[in-house]
């Protein structure tokens, strides 16, 4: 952990992620106008520039942009956690089993992931969202479907290399059952790159969700989703920049922060860098 924070960029990323998480959790307490995130409108105060009363200004319906950005952090992070969790839970075990067992199981699973990975993940998510009813839950589902094969691939690659190691061979010679070998030996020694990849991916998931919403395939109004806010505000962008810029900055900061954390984790967890 100390190694992780030694790099100033990583420390900054960690700080931003921590702040985002705190703001997301505390949004109902911090946001000046919580009702504006839930659908209430205030047309009298529409499109006001940043001011002490509305630090991020108000949008075309008079809603406080700061409050909506804060609630948007909840949505982005929650969807990120759910997608990441599901993708890991589905992808990693499949990859470990395929990589450890090899043979026909491996072939079958890898051909499935090949098909999935043949489509760009955003495009695949868009198609799924368009086929289903566009809403936040379906967007989450769609991103998960587009995401898990990456973890299967990654976990499989790790398992294939760990399978050759002396301790796995020793465990086989002891007659340790395959599920125990996968759990105790293969998983534990495959985790580091998977953790790094998931922290790097978190930003990409947030970005994908925003893209879907921006295109109208994800969250629907009045949900305070960042991508949707950018999408709705783009009609007023030239005259009332704050409607677009603040949610956009939130997306940018989130993606950048997770990438910094991921890079830092990679350095901290890389056994080659660690063994001096």
């Amino acid at each position: 952990m100390r190694r992780l924070l030694r790099n100033p960029l990583t420390a900054m990323g960690v700080a931003v992620v921590a702040a985002l998480a705190a703001l997301a959790v505390l949004a109902p307490l911090v946001a000046p106008y919580p009702e504006h995130a839930a659908g209430a409108v205030d047309p009298v105060h529409k499109l006001l520039g940043p001011s002490p009363a509305h630090p991020f200004g108000t949008d075309e319906l008079g809603r406080d942009v700061l409050s909506r950005v804060l609630y948007g952090a909840r949505i982005s992070l929650a969807v990120g956690v759910v997608v990441q969790g599901l993708a890991l839970v589905i992808g990693v075990p499949l990859g470990l089993v395929a990589g450890y067992l090899g043979g026909a199981v491996d072939e079958a699973l890898m051909r499935v992931t090949d098909v999935m990975l043949a489509f760009p993940s955003l495009l695949l998510a868009m198609v799924i969202c368009a086929a289903l009813k566009p809403n936040l839950a379906n967007a989450t589902l769609a991103i998960t479907i587009a995401w898990w094969p990456w973890y299967t691939r990654l976990a499989r690659g790790q398992a294939v290399s760990v399978r050759q190691s002396g301790y796995v061979r020793a465990a086989e010679a002891l007659g340790v059952p395959a599920p125990v070998i996968i759990w105790r030996h293969v998983l534990r020694n495959s985790l580091a790159p998977i953790i790094v990849q998931s922290s790097l991916d978190f930003g990409a998931i947030v970005l994908t969700l925003s893209s879907l919403s921006f295109l109208g395939l994800g969250a629907q109004s009045p949900t305070p989703e960042w991508g949707l806010m950018v999408s709705l505000g783009r009609n007023f962008f030239l005259t009332d920049w704050w409607v677009v810029v603040f949610p956009g900055m939130a997306i940018f900061a989130t993606v950048l922060a997770f990438n910094l954390v991921g890079d830092g984790l990679r350095e901290a967890l890389d056994p080659r860098a660690r063994r001096v």
Partner: peptide, 24 residues
């Protein structure tokens, strides 16, 4: 029978650096 065999025959592998799980 195979399980019993695994008890009865044990291996001390060549490389003590690779044969122990570094995370256990």
């Amino acid at each position: 029978g195979l399980r019993r065999l695994r008890r009865d025959m044990q291996l001390v592998p060549q490389d003590p650096y690779g044969s122990l799980n570094p995370r256990l």
